[in-house]
Amino acid sequence: MWTFIIRRLLQSAIVIIGVTLITFTALQMSGDPTYLYVSERATDEEIQRTREALGFDKPLPEQYLTFLGNLAQGDFGNSLSYKRPALDAVLEALPATLELTLFAMFLAIVVAIPLGVVASLNRGSAVDGSIMTVGMLGQSIPSFWLGIMMIMFFGLQMRILPISGHVPFIMPLLSGDWAQAFRNLPQALYYLIMPGFAVAFYSISRNARLVRSSMLEVLGQDFVRTARAKGISERAVVIRHALRNAWLPVVTMIGLEFGFLIGGVVVVEMVFSWPGIGRLVFNAINQRDIPVVQAAVVILALVFIALNLIVDLVYAKIDPRVKL
């Protein structure tokens, strides 16, 4: 178990170094990165001063090492528009983004598995057909457009769900105020429903299709026939025998889907004015606030890597064939 964790941590370290290298290269690709840090009306003298202050006049390998050293200390530089450390701004927005991401992941699993199972048990029926059609559609709808449509229908037309706003849950939890956190929970979920579904719809569709094909494969196998022959109730056959084997590929898939999910979160946050990293990044894009974009990218990459590590561990836990 520990060797597995250590190996995965080492792999993650390599990925993180890769990410920093790419982040660094991206900066250099603009030609002279100094111009990204000064205003358009800056004088030559100001430009030269900034260049020296930021170390862009030094040789590239030295610049990269300085860059890495600063990153290790959590120093991404000051945000150009907020005039405070970029990392602070990103960390402040992180809890809201985590709430949305985790809630979307929860939906992607909890909604998709029953849909896929029902479809597989009624193969070829109208139920199966409609679930699969919605599944196909779900993989073709941009999450932000779905968000806009939901706002128009559920928010503005029917007025049953809030079109923006956010009630913190993770923030009070982290600051130790558990009572407050759980008092906030119902409201927090209420505000999460629409953005959560907008982000998760793609994954729900994909997972439902995956569960269905995985179930169909398992249901045709000998051990399922044996279980049925033994006279076990159909419910037990499906849940205890088939599903337990069928959801392994789904767990793998969920790990890979974080990428999509995080991409979706960044864009959907914009639609719902969700106070997370996505909205921060969007504002930073408009201000060309490079340090904030860099900090956001690296932090989200860390979140992604951590979540993937957890999925791997869960996978090892539920599949006894995987030896750690």
Binding site: L27, S30, V266, A301, F304
Partner: peptide, 15 residues
């Protein structure tokens, strides 16, 4: 091992 859309965002902001 990395959500690609983030890299795309970063490159496009800079380029």
């Amino acid at each position: 091992a990395f959500p690609f859309i983030l890299l795309a965002i970063m490159f496009l902001v800079i380029l």
